[in-house]
């Protein structure tokens, strides 16, 4: 008993004198890279400990507004209403890029090519067979079967859906007017599965399925990925590099990069990409806040090299430089 007490006291002592504890919460999508960053950063700066709870983007925004955490994280930028409720100015800091990848399960078909309008037609239930003339025209060499298309989508509200819907709304007027943008949508057809892992499982098991997941799920589960036609007219497969390129066309003097980067006009860019952000309250007098700034400086320079192994795309050099300058 005495021993336990001593250990607890010792721990408390450490907290009070040596350690800085920083709390954050938010998006689930960047959780793997963030936790890698936090542990790498701690191995270099033993006195800083960063806790991150991946409770979802919406939760991250709410927690920052209520000031229960030192920083938040989100996939979709904060809307005007949330910003107006903030007690401090909250800046968005892009950290890495992610992509939403259409995946399919059709026998003997690999590297299917689609353009945005066709993808929208499929997810609206207007193209229902794999050997539809439009698909055959885009893929003259593929042996597309006379089979029903099963649309698989996220059932839970998610940033992934938001990026995907943003892309389809950008490229298809039809989609924009009938379905629109959002984390939860009214889907015309298809079945909803829970989480990236649910969509992955359903697509993998069901022949004739098409779904959308984050890049890392598509690669690690060896799903057949679709090459999308970008604005420059090229068919681009999703890779860490082609996703980074999507951000190269972006330009934002405020360095927040909250404008959508889907359907990028850059050459060789995969069109369904998005930034993910840290939400940083602008409190200059706060100790923790200073430490987070230091951490971000590290993450946007040395930290970027960890992104690729976890299938995130690093920020283009130009963007990273601009964000760092603003942080100073």
């Amino acid at each position: 008993m005495k021993n336990i007490l001593a250990v607890v006291l010792l721990g408390l002592g450490f907290n009070a004198f040596g350690m800085t504890k920083i709390n954050g919460a938010g998006a689930t999508f960047p959780y793997p890279i963030y936790s890698k960053w936090f542990s790498e950063y701690k191995s270099k700066n033993a006195e800083i400990e960063i806790n991150y709870q991946s409770i979802g983007s919406g939760g991250g925004i709410r927690q920052v507004l209520k000031q229960t955490v030192d920083f938040g994280a989100t996939d979709a930028p904060m809307n005007a209403k949330d910003k107006s409720e903030a007690p401090y100015k909250i800046s968005h800091i892009p950290t890495v890029l992610g992509a939403v990848v259409p995946v399919i399960n059709v026998k003997a078909v690999n590297g299917l090519k689609l353009d945005g309008e066709t993808l929208a037609q499929i997810f609206m239930g207007k193209i229902t067979k794999w050997n539809h003339p439009t698909l055959l025209k885009l893929n003259p060499k593929a042996k597309l079967p006379n089979e029903d298309i099963l649309v698989v989508r996220r059932a839970d509200g998610s940033g992934t859906t938001s990026v995907f819907a943003d892309y389809l709304s950008t490229v298809s007027k039809d989609w924009e007017s009938t379905v629109g943008r959002g984390k939860s949508l009214q889907w015309p057809v298809g079945i909803g599965s829970k989480g990236n892992e649910g969509v992955t499982a359903t697509v993998k098991q069901t022949e004739g399925a098409i779904g959308y997941v984050e890049l890392s799920y598509a690669i690690t589960n060896k799903l057949s990925m679709v090459a999308m036609k970008n604005k420059a007219g090229q068919f681009v497969s999703p890779t860490v590099e082609s996703i980074s390129k999507a951000a190269e066309g972006a330009n934002d003097p405020t360095a927040e990069y909250t404008a959508s980067i889907v359907d990028s006009s850059a050459k060789g860019a995969f069109p369904i990409a998005a930034f993910t952000y840290l939400l940083l309250p602008e409190k200059n007098d706060d100790m923790n806040n200073k430490e987070i700034r230091k951490f971000i400086k590290w993450a946007l320079t040395d930290g970027q090299k960890f992104a690729k192994d976890l299938y995130y795309s690093p920020l283009p050099k130009k963007v990273a430089k601009q964000v760092l300058e603003k942080l100073k």
Binding site: G56, G58, N79, A155, D156, G157, S184, W187, G192, K194
Partner: peptide, 28 residues
């Protein structure tokens, strides 16, 4: 998880409990 009313038992649907569990976390 497709909130719809279809006669077929093969069709997807959604229940009250399932939609709350799915959408509440990210409903903003």
């Amino acid at each position: 998880n497709q909130p719809q009313i279809k006669a077929s038992l093969f069709a997807p649907a959604a229940t009250m409990a399932s939609i709350i569990a799915n959408e509440y976390a990210e409903a903003d």
